[in-house]
Design a protein around this nucleic acid. Structure first.
Lengths: 384, 384
DNA sequence: TTGAAAGCGCTAACAT
DNA sequence: ATGTTAGCGCTTTCAA
């Protein structure tokens, strides 16, 4: 009743065409059962070498490639882990000739992708990536979820209600944000501690007092945590603790960093001794503006960023910042997922905080003025 | 006979647990047929709103997520395209604290991934990525091939014999290399023309005469094409045309670029007026070494690279190079694959050559000595 | 070591 | 607008 009749179209010389060959075709061609064909691919050693060769030869001749879908359905695993990330770049934006475009350089998500891919590969897994799109039943997320053994989600990518449903069916790890759902795994970086250490350095080691913090309008959890760390340091130093950032940039881009800096310089009253930016991009923008305005860094004002993007070490002066281990985060996520997938019984959800590293460079008055990487102490990580 | 009996484990309050729910469970719970459940996800509009809500509610309650594998098997499409790339970075290498690690910056493959993901997303596709591993029946490549509607392969990633088989079953586009297999699509960049233009610029506009070309030991097709372009320019100028590169670096890294430069400086005879490197990494290494040696660039010697990596514009002096549109290549690949997948009948294989762009900067004696991007004319692309 | 048979969970005609 | 019924191509007991 099944498809032995299922055609392998043949041209004159016997090469397969048009229809995609299946196990049945290979089995027929090599004179074995479909079970044996399957075994050749799943556990070659359980098949006699002679038989194996026969099957492989037939497969080659037919152009046979096992269907991943059929395998996945039958075996209930895919050997794939996934990643959903926000669509920073509008996919419809023109790629143009790629002017200053390149400079965006290594994105947040690129690093995570790289880390995950690497760790996945070590375990024989492939990585499925998809930037978030609209919600709804047929969102990309749902598609991803149905096709992987587990996946990671960058914060603010997938609606919580969707995750609520999905995370019951497949392991999900939330990246860089609050956990949101209590039975999900969760990895974040020490945003608060990082900014605290950085600010403390400005206060204690450089003796600065009038600081300004530039955050973002939409106040992501990450930026929020950084601001908290900033406040912690001020509080500890006995300085007035601001309720809100001195400025909130609509976007955390270089251009906005420039604009924010200009605004800050134009404000009445004494100029801040340090500009603490919520990310590197903005800080780099500030560097440009300050140079134009004839304000020296770090002599007249210190500048700090957050993220540790490659650009931060090549600007002049090199930027003091807090390095986020995004690559590492990707690796941890992959390892965690793969462990979840292979573990016999469900263990309690994990929450992991990755240590960040304060990188002291020229823009705060430290380190060598040029390249290199004088770095401070790594913060201890927490687990639980 | 089928699984209406298929258990939805229930706890006291009726929440589903343990077993993954299927269409049958959702159908039962909402009092419709499995076909209707399927319709709710595939074409919501073909179902009465009231029914749809009922089904969705049940799905939510049960924690139902459609199985991608089952869908793929039944519908014979996956909505996924793939990419196989070489494993530049050893996955087992320690990620360490990430010292100078970051500087590797945006890799070749990152850009392609980004381009493909973006184009894929525009069409509602997700992207499956896998770095190549060993060959054999159970290679990652085979896994990818079986799970996608089509995929792209970076040159020298997958054994030709494997591709031979696989490309018969699913559309494959070869990236950046020779086509290898005649029925495969193929996209490459104008390596030869790019290096030709660049060399010609050195010869014609700067009046240089004694050039040296630094290639690679393994002589990839890309590097080979670049060398050809270099020779074309020399020939055209009536200069002696070398049989082989002046030096072949074992790896195209910065360190090797330094070493090569040292070797070249130590050679007897007049020093070259220009060092033409087969890629940017090596050229950057050269810049360092030349500075150490007290040789001025471009006054004493011009230096050029190839690729247009971000680093090339921040080094001192900024590097004259040929920018490869890798992002664009990713996009083209994705578009091509998706077209192949959706096209009614097979059209002849495509071979596309993407134009590159000579970027004239300080290291050859052009442009502003600092940042920015004075760029020359784009080369025309070819199609066919 | 190999074969036979029963699904895996879904989509896609075809009915109704 | 909804239900019925076959498979999609593979893995997997269970026998032989």
């Amino acid at each position: 009743m099944n498809a032995l009749s299922f055609g392998v179209d043949r041209t004159g010389d016997g090469a397969a065409v048009s229809d995609t060959p299946t196990v049945y075709d290979v089995a027929e061609q090599s004179g074995v059962s479909i079970a044996t064909v399957s075994r050749v691919y799943r556990s070659p050693d359980s098949v006699r070498p002679a038989t194996r060769e026969k099957v492989l030869a037939a497969a080659r001749a037919l152009g046979y490639v096992p269907s991943g879908s059929a395998r996945g359905l039958a075996s209930r695993t895919t050997g794939i882990i996934g990643l959903c990330f926000p669509d920073y770049a509008d996919p419809d934006a023109d790629s143009g000739a790629g002017e200053g475009d390149e400079e965006a350089g290594t994105l947040y998500s690129d690093q995570i992708i790289r880390g995950m891919e690497r760790a996945a590969r070590r375990h024989g897994y492939a990585l499925l990536i998809a930037a978030s799109l609209a919600g709804g039943p047929e969102s990309l997320v749902a598609k991803v979820a149905g096709r992987v053994d587990g996946f990671a989600v960058l914060a603010r990518t997938v609606p919580t209600e969707d995750l609520e449903v999905i995370s019951r069916r497949v392991p999900v790890v939330m990246l860089a944000g609050p956990r949101e759902i209590d039975h999900m795994d969760h990895i974040e970086v020490a945003n608060r501690d990082g900014e605290y250490q950085l600010t403390r350095h400005l206060l204690a080691d450089h003796g600065l007092r009038r600081l300004a913090f530039i955050g973002s309008a939409d106040e992501s959890p990450d930026v929020g945590a950084r601001f908290e760390g900033y406040r912690d340091a001020l509080r500890e130093a006995g300085l007035p603790v601001p309720e809100a950032p001195d400025l909130r940039a609509p976007l955390m881009t270089r251009a906005e960093g420039s604009r924010a800096t200009r605004a800050l310089l134009d404000r009445p009253g004494p100029r801040p001794e340090a500009l603490v930016f919520a990310n590197d991009q903005m800080a780099v923008g500030a560097l440009h503006t300050l140079e134009e305005a004839g304000v020296r860094v770090p002599e007249d004002v210190a500048v700090t960023g957050f993220d540790g993007i490659p650009l931060s070490r090549v600007v002049r002066p090199p930027l003091t910042t807090v390095r986020q281990p995004m690559r590492r985060m990707g690796e941890e996520a992959a390892e965690l997922l793969i462990q979840r997938v292979t573990e016999a019984q469900r263990t309690p959800p994990v929450s992991r905080v990755l240590p960040v590293e304060v990188t002291r460079r020229g823009s705060c008055g430290c380190g060598e003025p040029s390249g290199g990487g004088a770095s401070g102490a790594a913060l201890p990580g927490a687990e639980g």
